[in-house]
Nucleic acid binder design. Structure first.
Length: 463
RNA sequence: UCCUCGAUAGCUCAACGGUAGAGCAACCGGCUGUUAACCGGUAGGUUGUAGGUUCGAAUCCUACUCGGGGAGCCA
């Protein structure tokens, strides 16, 4: 007999009702009486459990009555209408085969666990309701992002994981090396000599695929990256991880407004996709994780994102009469408290802030005519803060070269990046979207460690 | 990295200077439709680690380790 999935039973219950089926899965909980009992079975295909009913007619009835949470079983029986109120149908077991027993010290219980505890059993937590929902949505959203870009003619570029350039100084890099730590070769002034290293130069894990994506953008016109990114920052917050995934679209013959349009369109599409394709999971988040989730997401889908300049943001903050811990002054970067005020209190929706002072932004951003600001944009969203950072790129060779020289860059390290301006450099723009921050925003989960299967953070690389 | 709070049974917590407890889980038993099932019972602890104060420390002090929240860095 062919094995069915719980998902199939729920989606096409009419086809299965009063027919024999077999389901393989894991026991979530057992409620047994003297002569019969119930098993909540989850097979991973669907958020909801299947209720299995058994009675003394089972040859192994005694063992089944003692099944504990976590056991892997295979159930064959007839799918029948359920007299119970909480499920439309149930599986009346004719045979239950115990595929894998579960030791008595199984850490997961049928009651609620703290997320802190579940992080310590990251190998088991996908078996819980919350993490089952989070990681199914994560999978769906990854697909939705590819779908969004592919349908719009973007080319998916695999930028390198190992890289020789700490491109934008986006963060500290993890070093990649095959040098013997007991005998590190040193040259003049005791500086480490990387010439004998695997790549013959100093290399690390990528902190951004943007510079390489720009190269492909100048060939394909519209590209995006979607891959792992690494930052060796000692960041201890619920929004930072040492290994995370980033989506970086790059579009040619386009400016800052185009990239904002793209970002807004993408977010709306992805949110709609999740609501449509993971309704059970999203309802769960709205009920148990964040009661305002649907309201917030629907607000995002329907409303136009606010677009203000950095200068306007400063004015709003100064005129707000709100007490801030950090000073608000043109030229200083916006602090988290300022960003939260703008997106959560003043506008209460996603806000693009553009035109930051060039001193506080990366070298590659296009300089505005005022000589003071660059065509940068950050997208701030309620609850998560900065979810997107982007800009129009400086496509003018001389402007870029001067800027890099002023910041003390070694031009030889960026020869190919400058070449892109030399050979048919067109105006272009793009942004980076933190994939996990998007998942947090979509699910209402408030810690990045709970939206990554096996999170990597300072002092934590277990599993 | 800084500030702050915390660490007690497998889990969630109580006890706040005087013999370490409860609910859930586990185990044993009961129960003819359960829904975090219910009812009775059993077992389970060098109170994160190392020092110190005290007649006496889970409780007070110091350091360390790990974790939460806030900040910085950013996505």
């Amino acid at each position: 007999m062919e094995t069915s999935t719980v998902k199939e039973l729920f989606n096409r219950s009419g086809d299965y009702l009063n027919k024999r089926v077999r389901i393989n899965g894991w026991v979530r909980t057992v409620r047994s009486s003297k002569e019969f009992g119930f098993i909540e079975l989850n097979d991973g295909s669907f958020f909801a459990n299947l209720q299995v009913v058994y009675d003394e007619s089972l040859s192994n009835h005694k063992e089944v009555a003692k099944l504990i949470t976590g056991t892997a079983i295979s159930v064959t029986g007839e799918l029948v209408k359920s007299p119970g109120a909480k499920q439309p149908f149930e599986l009346k077991a004719e045979s239950i085969i115990i595929e894998g027993s579960c030791a008595a010290d199984y850490p997961l219980q049928k009651k609620r666990h703290s997320f802190e505890f579940l992080r310590q059993v990251a190998h088991l937590r996908p078996r819980t309701n919350t993490f089952s929902a989070v990681f199914r949505v994560r999978s769906l959203v990854a697909y939705a992002i590819h779908k969004f870009f592919q349908e719009r003619g973007f080319v998916y570029v695999h930028t390198p994981i190992i890289t020789g350039n700490d491109a934008e100084g986006a963060g500290e890099m993890f070093r990649v090396t095959t040098l013997n730590f007991d005998k590190i070769p040193r040259g003049v002034e005791n500086v480490v000599d990387f010439s004998g290293d695997f790549f013959g130069k100093e290399t690390g894990l990528t902190v951004s695929g943007q510079l390489e994506a720009e190269a492909y953008c100048m060939a394909f016109g519209k590209v995006y990256t979607f891959g792992p990114t690494f930052r060796a920052e000692n960041s201890n917050t619920p929004r930072h991880a040492a290994e995370f995934w980033m989506i970086e679209p790059e579009i040619a013959f386009a400016g800052l407004d185009d990239s904002m349009d793209l970002a807004e369109d993408m977010l709306k599409c992805v949110i709609s996709y999740s609501l449509e394709h993971a309704p059970e999971e999203m309802r769960f988040f709205n009920s148990f994780i964040d009661k305002a989730l649907f309201q917030r997401l629907e607000n995002v889908i329907k409303s136009d994102f606010e677009r203000i300049t950095y200068s306007q943001a400063i004015d709003i903050l100064i005129n707000s009469r709100e007490q801030f811990e950090y000073p608000v002054k043109w030229g200083l970067d916006l602090q988290t408290e300022h960003e939260r005020f703008l997106t959560e209190k003043h506008f209460n929706k996603p806000v693009f802030v553009t035109g930051y002072p060039k001193e506080i932004k990366a070298f590659y951003m296009r300089q505005n005519d005022d000589g003071k600001t660059v065509a940068a944009m950050d997208l701030l969203v309620p609850g998560v803060g900065e979810i997107i950072g982007g800009s129009q790129r400086e496509e003018r060779f001389d402007y870029l070269e001067k800027r890099m020289a002023k910041l003390g860059f070694n031009m030889q390290d960026y020869w190919w990046y400058l070449d892109l301006r030399k050979y048919g450099g067109a105006c272009h723009a793009g942004f980076g979207l933190g994939f996990e921050r998007l998942i947090m925003y979509l699910t209402g989960m408030t810690n990045i460690r709970d939206v990554i299967p096996f999170p990597r953070t300072p002092k934590n690389a277990e599993f």
